[in-house]
């Protein structure tokens, strides 16, 4: 059920993010989600692209440092407090979330969150048992 996320090393300087997104745009790659974790000197750009392999190849060919990581895309009811249901299930099961961010737009009436956590397979089972939808790559339009 896991989907592939691409993490790119970003030096902190004006225009560097644009260089990366321009490169992806030039290669007709569409982004499903984007997040930046930053330190004083550099940042980690995390993206979900519609074509992971192509995006990775393009980035590496252009000298960027990039790696892929398995993450989960989890549905959250698009209502106030919708996220809490998900977090409560995880908290009750003592699951540690490394980081989380949201996907652009809607595949259905739900909002979708990207989650990075340990022991993803067990968590998928746990979520499904609690009637929480874990989205597949197809559902999110990812090749």
């Amino acid at each position: 059920m896991a989907i592939k996320q691409i993490t790119v090393f970003l030096e902190n300087r004006a225009g560097r993010l644009l260089e990366i997104t321009q490169l992806l745009a030039d290669n007709k790659i569409d982004l499903r989600a984007l997040n930046i974790a930053e330190t004083t000197d550099y940042g980690l750009l995390r993206i979900i692209a519609d074509d992971t392999e192509k995006a990775l190849t393009v980035l590496k060919e252009n000298g960027a440092i990039a790696t892929t990581t398995d993450v989960l895309a989890v549905a959250v009811p698009n209502v106030s407090g919708g996220l809490n249901t998900l977090l409560r299930v995880l908290a009750n099961a003592n699951v540690d979330v490394s980081y989380m961010y949201s996907i652009f737009g809607h595949a259905d009436e739900n909002a979708y969150m990207i989650l990075q956590l340990a022991e993803a397979d067990e968590v998928v089972a746990l979520l499904q048992k609690n009637d929480i939808i874990v989205a597949t790559e197809e559902k999110l339009g990812i090749n």
Binding site: Q5, T7, F9, A37, T39, Y42, L44, R46, I65, T67
Partner: peptide, 15 residues
């Protein structure tokens, strides 16, 4: 200079 070998998705690991 960062290298693919050192790089990881974990900010904690890099730090």
């Amino acid at each position: 200079e960062m290298t693919p070998e050192i790089f990881s998705d974990s900010l904690g690991h890099i730090t």
